[in-house]
């Protein structure tokens, strides 16, 4: 029986995690990078899923899409925390570092808003394959090797396409990113 037939709105979270284990590992692995940390990250991500499972709204998207988003954000947080933990001496320092890193001025927010608007406009000029390559590289943090293997492209072809995509986007965005 396929997953599509098995899942229901009232599926226990343990079953959901079990059935989507492969997907979760797939999302986590490239972000974490270090194979030794994948299991730890997976544990952290499943904690987040369990905590937030009741917030999943099936009308806003599929379960797989929600899990993908949670896993991605969870893995990024895990990596960030690991980085701060390695730099800082203790948890307190790590928390302080995170706070500082996240602190943005009103001006920062305005610039980010401008850049986001230009970025959205530039994204419209990409075709489906270009958008997928971009997403895999900068959202899912996949290596060009993995992107190429999964899309049936050589590594060099992926690098070439990424170069052209960025060039296209830079042109659309007027050649400069607001700083």
């Amino acid at each position: 029986m396929s997953f599509e037939k098995q899942k229901t709105d009232y599926m226990p979270v343990e079953l959901v995690i079990g059935q989507h284990r492969g997907l979760l590992h797939y999302i986590i692995r490239p972000i974490v990078g270090d194979e030794n940390l994948v299991d730890d990250c997976f544990s952290a991500v499943t904690e987040i899923i369990v905590k937030n499972y009741d917030k999943y709204d099936s009308s806003r998207g599929t379960l797989a899409a929600w899990l993908t988003k949670v896993a991605r954000n969870g893995a990024l947080s895990f990596v960030q925390n690991k980085k701060y933990a390695m730099t800082a001496g203790d948890r307190q320092d790590a928390a302080r570092m995170e706070e500082v890193a996240d602190r943005k001025t009103p001006e920062d927010h305005l610039i980010q808003k401008e850049n986001l608007a230009e970025l959205k406009e530039a994204l419209k000029s990409l075709d489906k394959l270009e958008a997928e390559i971009l997403l895999r590289k900068y959202y899912y943090m996949q290596e060009t090797r993995q992107i190429g293997a999964e899309l049936g492209l050589s590594e060099r072809a992926v690098e070439g396409r990424l170069y052209r995509i960025k060039k296209k986007m830079m042109k659309k965005m007027g050649g400069a990113i607001h700083d």
């Binding site: 997907l23 998207g61 599929t62 797989a64 899409a65 993908t68 988003k69 991605r72 954000n73 980010q112 850049n115 986001l116 970025l119 959205k120 994204l123 489906k128 958008a131 997928e132 971009l134 997403l135 900068y138 959202y139 960025k166 986007m169 830079m170 965005m173 990113i177």
Partner: peptide
């Protein structure tokens, strides 16, 4: 651009549009 992409791609609807 790369930094911008990493930071702001989640705020676009690209991931939703392309699906899992």
């Amino acid at each position: 651009l790369e930094e911008l992409l990493k930071e702001t791609l989640p705020e676009t609807s690209l991931a939703e549009n392309l699906g899992v």
